[in-house]
């Protein structure tokens, strides 16, 4: 019974990890940019939801709004800033993203203060009891939204012209150019979509956890671990990685001790890099 409860806890939070990592993984896979600012985007999504909630907008309604705002931010950042150094060495783009992260985080801290805030809806804290198990309502909602968004992203990439352009750019830059893909625009779109996924993750995160301007750092790290464990280049990678990480963390916490989940998740990261350097699903890189 206890083990089942732990598994449920792990799966539910794993869904959220998956959504967080999708954006990072997409940008990484297509553009070879490790977006250190990903966590800061998640934070912005969370605060968008918080402020709209203060104005009486339900988090589930603010979800598309925070996605749209973050898409815009991501699109503009890529088009006018990151694009300037996109052909530079990995280190330069990493540094730039790091700078963006510090800038966003500190602006948020100045403007919104470092106070801990929470989105407390009328239904947060509600839960469904099934035969002795407790399933928190908000978490199950967040879990399914995460899966739906992952599915939608999959369809977008597989079935639309834009998605084909994104995949083409990722697979063979030269060929994509030769066949008339506007690479600069495609990159901006990809970055925008990645940021929008971060925005969505932020909205869901704010429904589950308290938020602060500095919450992003650890989330970037988690997204990174999930991306690597799951494998780049496939949509299913982050989903599998997220669920694996969620389950691993919760079982470690339950049976080894609450101080060990980080050891296990980074142990998983190292083990993946050694045994399956391309991730569990081993996508094309």
């Amino acid at each position: 019974m206890f083990a089942t409860q732990v598994a449920i806890n792990g799966l539910l939070v794993g869904g959220l990890y998956a959504l967080m990592a999708l954006g990072l993984s997409l940008i990484w896979g297509v553009m070879d940019v490790i977006n250190i600012a990903h966590g800061a985007f998640i934070m912005l999504g969370a605060y968008t939801t918080y402020w709209l909630f203060q104005a009486g907008v339900d988090p589930l309604i603010s979800l598309p709004i925070s996605m749209a705002l973050l898409f815009l931010l991501g699109f503009l950042l890529q088009k006018y800033l990151i694009n300037l150094v996109i052909r530079a060495e990995l280190f330069i783009t990493l540094l730039l993203a790091f700078g963006i992260e510090i800038l966003i985080m500190n602006l948020a801290r100045v403007v919104w203060t470092a106070n801990v805030r929470r989105v407390a809806t009328s239904y947060s804290g509600a839960s469904i009891g099934v035969g002795g198990l407790t399933i928190p309502l908000v978490r199950i909602i967040a879990f399914f939204i995460a899966l739906i968004l992952a599915g939608a992203l999959f369809l977008l990439l597989e079935r639309t012209r834009m998605g084909r352009a994104i995949r083409a750019t990722s697979q063979d830059l030269l060929a994509a150019r030769l066949t008339g893909t506007n690479v600069s625009n495609t990159y901006a779109l990809t970055f925008g979509i990645g940021a929008a996924m971060a925005g969505a993750a932020g909205t869901l995160w704010s429904m589950l956890f308290p938020i602060t301007p500095t919450m992003g750092g650890v989330l970037t790290l988690k997204s990174f671990v999930v991306s690597v464990i799951g494998g780049l280049g496939t949509m299913a990678g982050p989903v599998v990685g997220g669920l694996v990480l969620g389950l691993a963390e919760n079982f470690t916490s339950a049976y080894i001790g609450p101080t060990f989940p980080n050891l296990i998740s980074f142990g998983l990261l190292v083990a993946t890099l050694i045994l399956r350097p391309r991730g569990i699903l081993g996508g094309r890189r």
């Binding site: 206890f2 409860q5 732990v6 806890n9 792990g10 939070v13 956890f209 963390e249 919760n250 916490s253 339950a254 609450p258």
Partner: peptide, 10 residues
């Protein structure tokens, strides 16, 4: 720590 679900279950 942001995730106490498991500890709380215990």
């Amino acid at each position: 720590t942001q995730e106490f679900s498991t500890l709380l279950s215990r």
